[in-house]
Design a protein around this nucleic acid. Structure first.
Lengths: 180, 180
DNA sequence: ACAGCCATGTAACTCGTTACATGATTAC
DNA sequence: GTAATCATGTAACGAGTTACATGGCTGT
């Protein structure tokens, strides 16, 4: 029963565990609101191929609806899907996080960048970081206090703290680059 | 001249910009010491294929050495390679970091995990985080105060601060899960 | 009428991994 | 002599992306 699926597949099953009966399109939207910050938001095309595969594995089932001429497919977790998800969650250990940090990577080669560029790179990063934070804050606000989304809220708070500490660290780095 | 290479290719060029005349094997070791923490450490096989490609693009050149029966290939940056690397570094903006955080992803679905498991997952994460930190600290120590590696040292310090703030946040999360 | 969103998919391709394969050199 | 490390590659595969392709529904 513990067939190896990619983490992204489990992530999609997890989204279905919250809002059952979603279309591929809606699933992508949910992914943009949550997965994007802690994992990745798969491309639309991948969502659809993934759903097809999960259906073949009988982890989700699909209902075809017809509204006028348009066909809409809504996906639900099956019992097998729910079991597979819980088994994955119970299977330790969780892998160590992977960080792909282009700004850190570039700063590593700081001696090849001119000083002004180094500083403006960090400034630009601070700006995009602030933007991201606003986006995550909006998601956090939308979750409110509802017990049903207590864990998503907790993780969103974690993410916000991370953005804050990153902001502080980069600001300090920026200051160190100032004095030269 | 600004042909699009993958970020990992530039990362390898960057490593060659520090220690010129490295073998594929040595390059992999350097990657394990630095890139691993902020980007990814490519598999050995990828290092070799990447070097072959970079050579075809004339961004690196290769010297074949013979020591007894063994053939060793040492790679150096060419002028074109150095230029391509600098151009990439000067080409803003740097992309936003990507975080793949399996622990956060799982906690998102915390309602599907039993409370004991939730706590032990965070405990295990704290442990591997401490381990990682020791590894990065060793790298940092090896860099010392030398001006030639000032930027790698700066980035290593940044990474250490990140591990520390992550430790603090997870410890706090762990505490919140305690009271239930 | 037109824009923007909803909705679903296929095809080609790239990046990167694991598994496979080989063998020399060095230190104990 | 034998284990660890140095050294280089090929083959098969998987995960994920972008580009391509289509078309209905909704609000103004």
């Amino acid at each position: 029963m513990s067939q190896e699926l990619a983490t992204t597949s489990y992530a999609l099953l997890g989204l279905l565990a919250f809002g059952d009966g979603l279309t591929g399109y809606e699933l992508k939207q949910r992914a943009d609101n949550t997965l994007r910050f802690y994992w990745v938001s798969p491309a639309m095309s991948q969502v659809y191929t993934e759903l097809t595969r999960l259906e073949q594995l009988a982890l989700v089932k699909m209902n075809t609806e017809r509204r006028g001429l348009r066909t809409t497919r809504r996906y639900h977790l099956t019992d097998a899907g729910s079991t597979a998800l819980r088994e994955w969650l119970a299977r330790p250990p969780a892998e160590f996080p992977i960080l792909k940090h282009p700004v850190a990577l570039r700063l590593l080669m700081g001696h090849l960048i001119d000083p002004g560029m180094r500083r403006s790179m960090l400034d630009a990063y601070l700006q995009s970081l602030a933007q991201r934070r606003i986006e995550l804050q909006a998601v956090r606000d939308s979750l409110g206090d509802e017990p049903a989304v207590r864990f998503p809220a907790m993780v969103a708070d974690w993410g916000l703290d991370y953005y804050e500490s990153e902001r502080a660290m980069v600001t300090e780095l920026r200051r160190r680059l100032e004095g030269e």
